[in-house]
Write a protein that binds this DNA or RNA. Sequence first.
DNA 1: CCCAACTTGTACAGCACTGTTCGAGATACG
DNA 2: CGTATCTCGAACAGTGCTGTACAAGTTGGG
Lengths: 203, 203
Amino acid sequence: MTDSQARTSESTRARRSDAQRSVAAILEAAQACLALDPDASTAEIARAAGVGRVTLYGHFGSRLELVDQTFARSMARAEETLDQVDLSGDARDGLARLIGSSWTLIARSRSILVAAQRTLPPERIRELHDRPMRRVQDLIERGQAVGAFRTDLPTTWMVATFYSVLHGAADEITAGRLDSDSAADLITSTILPCFARDPAPSR
Amino acid sequence: MTDSQARTSESTRARRSDAQRSVAAILEAAQACLALDPDASTAEIARAAGVGRVTLYGHFGSRLELVDQTFARSMARAEETLDQVDLSGDARDGLARLIGSSWTLIARSRSILVAAQRTLPPERIRELHDRPMRRVQDLIERGQAVGAFRTDLPTTWMVATFYSVLHGAADEITAGRLDSDSAADLITSTILPCFARDPAPSR
DNA sequence: CCCAACTTGTACAGCACTGTTCGAGATACG
DNA sequence: CGTATCTCGAACAGTGCTGTACAAGTTGGG
């Protein structure tokens, strides 16, 4: 009664158009604000969305819920892009292509990930991270099966390394020690020899 | 007058022994607490040190100052250990030894680094990070000069990769997906082929 | 046109934290 | 032993946040 818009689960009653616009604006603003500061307050986000703080709480029960939806949306969007990456053919080429598409996404949404990690329970993070991670893992496993990638390292670890380097690259860029243009090539030429068969002729 | 112990720069007046003990206990507790939670409050730290909160503020002007000193001490200790690593001889072996010694240190002080990053200005972080980083950089450059490491990647980037993988390993351990025993070998056999000359025979 | 849905600012309660003050008590150390 | 140094708890001011309540306005949509 008192609360005008109580949605949160059940009641799929279509929202009025202006309400939909508000929600969209808030999510957009949250994405932008959290990217700048993972600790952005609801006041900041509401202001950036051009909306009253009360309105924000009308649509999202809590800050946590807002962060959750923002993160989920960010991941969903990323997945849309990743879905279009051609992973067939040579596993090495596939990995290169995957890197090319992934690293920009990661660089952009990394700060949101931090925000999510600070407010969401770990299992929720993993839940949303699972699908994109699985994608990498599948590719690596295929490469191993075909003999393109080394098999002396656990797949899990290789996936972790993949993400470590990508995130590291994002760090280097925000630190200004690396420019975005050369990033993809750099990452690729770093990871490929690390994943390739023949551990290196040294020793 | 009112403030009993005002040290902070100048006045190298020797502290009384119990005061020294308090300072030591606080720093130790800070290390432990910040390792568990990078946002640990002064109250928590004081309690863990078995000391009143007021006492803590008697020795450290602010939380920032405490974090700074804790981080600095942690880095100094790490450097002591790192100083004893033999980096002469084959660059690859040197790197392997450096990894062996570094990764434990990183795994232990990683959370403190996070705390430092959240409270200290970025240039202060860099200032304290500079020396250990230089160590890695020098080794890599030497390896490049001798022909052991590839030269097609910027040294800065290789250093960044080095740290990325180490931190990534630490993450994997705290996530329970990797056990401490196998970590060093895993890291080494990941990084070495990535740094080695002959980019890999593939393609 | 009308009403329910939506938005708004202000204001408030509650919390957690930082940093300071005070006054009294304990303790190192000369 | 005496004193400057140190420690303590309790208490307070100040800040910045979250989440809620209210009461009045605006707007979409049937």
